[in-house]
Design a protein around this nucleic acid. Sequence first.
DNA 1: GCACTGTTTTCCGCCCTGTGGAATTATCCA
DNA 2: TGGATAATTCCACAGGGCGGAAAACAGTGC
Lengths: 256, 256
Amino acid sequence: MVQSLNRALDVLEALAAGSDDVGISQITARTGLPLGTVHRLLSSLVARGYAAQDLETRLYGPGPRLLEVAARASASRRFSLSRIARPALLGLTTATGETSNLLVLNGDEAVYSEQVASPHLVRMFTEVGQRVPLYCIGGGKAMLAGFADDQLEAYLDRTTLCAFTPKTKATAESLRHELTGVREQGFAIDDEEREVGVCCIAAPIFDRLGRCVAALSISGPTTRMSRERALGLGPLVHEAAATCSIQLGFHPAESG
Amino acid sequence: MVQSLNRALDVLEALAAGSDDVGISQITARTGLPLGTVHRLLSSLVARGYAAQDLETRLYGPGPRLLEVAARASASRRFSLSRIARPALLGLTTATGETSNLLVLNGDEAVYSEQVASPHLVRMFTEVGQRVPLYCIGGGKAMLAGFADDQLEAYLDRTTLCAFTPKTKATAESLRHELTGVREQGFAIDDEEREVGVCCIAAPIFDRLGRCVAALSISGPTTRMSRERALGLGPLVHEAAATCSIQLGFHPAESG
DNA sequence: GCACTGTTTTCCGCCCTGTGGAATTATCCA
DNA sequence: TGGATAATTCCACAGGGCGGAAAACAGTGC
């Protein structure tokens, strides 16, 4: 572990942590590094544009180059959703024995874009690429729950809800009510709402700007996937989705 | 300038540059650093999460921590639009003697959110906080020109164009035509389209995702701001806006 | 205007840490 | 199985980073 680099990263992270500029002495306090050292490292960071100094206040803050490099990096194949989701899907299917899917938000629909199939003979099979309305599947409802209030209302305004099965939540009222529950729990269930005999549990994935862009789901025939079992798997899916969010650069605490 | 840090940043940037993972030897070639050195620096970057190694291919790519830290940093007051725009506005007003404004996109309207007033006795005066439609002012048209095609069409669909003056471009056709011109030039003019006797010139500001979020404008009475003078100021406004974009983390070349 | 306090910035000799060539190990093809 | 390519690990040297302390610089109260 290269010492100076390691310390410089400490300094960089200290700069990025707060929303206000900080002085050298504050950074010294936070990092525990000697003052002279902090100054030297900061100068180098400034020279490369990773930090910047306000000439009036003499305080330091994160620099534009940091954002620039991160923006380029985010274009890397490494951060493509499907690549990130693959291990999560494998994990879910291994753990549960049921088919898991990555659903991506596209307009007002969800698109099945990655799948790991269950080893069971009787299993869920949805075509990758298939598009479905958001309100009637687990992954869709997970994403709706991640919407901001006005975004959700706009969606409800322009969408005609239609009951695919007797259990479909086909009124704005019932949907709104359910989504508040989803927000609290962190996962959404679809208990035969799209198709009779199919139950699924899902959780939302957020990008680095805190926008809900996708969802993970596990689905199976109700013979194996009872409502109870599905709900029990909720935390598992939630955890897997949260891991994906973090890898996308999402920061849970303060996403301003 | 701390050598090891400096080199580590070279390595980091080399990782972030391409959209595919790279091997150590490729980085050695790109940076000119010795192989052992690159490996050592990379290991440190990996340990901190700024780089990541694919265990199958053994190739390296940018790490999630980079995005995470950048996401936090972007919340810094330092990158708030109005803070970035202030010097630009000062520069424009100093250079031209006319009032300059920062307009921020909000829904389908532009909001005047920062202003530096002209020293002239006869001058433009718009209230900060005022909201105006996009299609009839310079800054609004600059932002429309920065919209993607489908985004623009959706806007035109849901907006009723209304002629404020005889010169207002109040048809979808005339607007579309004008906007293609704006895209080529990089600035938009408003020659008495909102109010008779007022002319303004404006350019769009893009955020780090390449989305058009705001615009800078210079406006003045037609007695001083002739159409010709305004057009002559176009490159100046364009340049100022481009500087703001870069400080927001916008990367002109490959913004994927 | 002047001393005082809490900063940031600069300096410099010691020595720890990063350096990079070369040896070692892993991996991929044929 | 063996040969080529690339990734790791190793180690002795010395150059670069370290950090204490001094100097320069605001900002504040008298």
